[in-house]
């Protein structure tokens, strides 16, 4: 693969960064910690609407829907937090007769608790819970074990056992229709958004992370255009109540609870950055030359970071490579 510099692209570096990012699972966007102490992490509950809650701990946000059918969980954060997550869900649950787990993508800060929650569900119900994810998530976790690819280390009991192969999957649970929508080539190649139609709540996974640049995991099939497409699709789903406020609630992969206006700002940001980098690529600039122009300067103080596992530098590089392919 040849980039704008005429030099071979350093995909190894991007891949390594992605592996580090997933393996260490330290995507704590609000307070990057080198060595998180899971004992000190508490699981906080934010009621979103009706019987839907947002759980905030370390790693990706968890969405929990409870009702007479049982418990539906979107993403499961890190394995070491599972006991606390289970206790929190237990407090919220109205019925534990059935469990469903949906994974928005393959990263360990979103699927790390699958195994423990699945085991817990088996103890309650006698059967394994449904674990739903896009087929591409299953493909990645079932690949031959590779110590450099953390998702291949996941136990088979934590694998998606109800993958969907098409663009969407519907289900009806706890009295409301739920749409699981695949968004190709966005954060990864296996992203799903989960739309709770009656409650009017969308759980987005990491295609939307307010306050931080999106992680574009090129090694796992992500792309900047895919993220923009996903955000535009999300904006088609969201409906405001009045004066650009209220209406559909959006639970992001990381960060605060949001609404349509927040998604618009985020979509605008990444669309503008895409246009800037594309313009520089069209002018024949190399990656380093693009970085030297500081094309994200006006967004860095809001979304960027010089440290941690997803720096501004890595973001620009991912956008550049994504547009150069």
């Amino acid at each position: 693969m040849i980039g704008g510099t005429g030099q071979p692209m350093n995909l190894q570096r991007v891949a390594l960064a992605s592996v580090m990012l997933v393996f260490l699972g330290l995507l704590n966007f609000t307070n990057a910690q080198e060595n998180p102490n899971f004992d000190e992490v508490s699981i906080r509950v934010l009621p979103v609407r009706d019987n839907i809650y947002m759980l905030v701990g370390l790693g990706g946000n968890i969405t929990v829907q409870v009702g007479e059918n049982g418990v539906l969980v979107v993403d499961t954060q890190f394995a070491p937090l599972s006991e606390k997550i289970k206790a929190t869900i237990n407090d919220l649950a109205q019925s534990t007769s059935r469990y469903i787990i949906i994974n928005t993508h393959v990263h360990l800060d979103h699927v790390g608790g699958n195994e423990a929650l699945a085991q817990w569900a088996r103890e309650h119900t006698g059967t394994a819970p449904q674990i739903i994810a896009h087929e591409n998530v299953l493909v990645r976790v079932t690949a031959p074990p590779d110590e450099n690819i953390p998702e291949t280390q996941i136990s088979p009991t934590a694998w998606p056992n109800a993958p969907y192969l098409t663009g969407f999957k519907d289900l009806y649970f706890n009295g409301e229709p739920i749409e699981i929508l695949h968004q190709p080539e966005a954060h990864t190649d296996g992203d799903s958004m989960v739309f709770f139609r009656s409650s009017d709540v969308v759980s987005t996974g990491d295609i939307f992370t307010p306050g931080n640049y999106p992680v574009i995991d090129i090694a796992r099939g992500g792309s900047v255009q895919g993220i923009i497409n996903a955000l535009n699709r999300l904006l088609r789903i969201t409906v405001v109540e009045a004066f650009q406020e209220g209406g559909t609630k959006v639970i992001p992969g990381h960060g605060r609870l949001c609404e349509e206006a927040d998604v618009v700002e985020y979509r605008n940001m990444i669309t503008i950055i895409r246009d800037r980098v594309q313009n520089l690529i069209n002018r024949g600039m190399s990656l380093q030359e693009v970085k030297n122009t500081r094309p994200t300067l006006d967004y860095d103080t809001e979304y960027g970071s010089d440290t941690g596992f997803w720096t501004t530098d890595m973001f620009i590089e991912a956008v550049y490579r994504s547009l150069s392919e």
Binding site: L46, V56, F243, G255, R256, L257, C258, A261
Partner: peptide, 22 residues
Amino acid sequence: EMERTIYMDGRAHPPEYAHHTW
């Protein structure tokens, strides 16, 4: 129809992860 509510009862501000408004 911009409305502001200024709480005077000493309540705390919400956590950072709560939603933001205009």
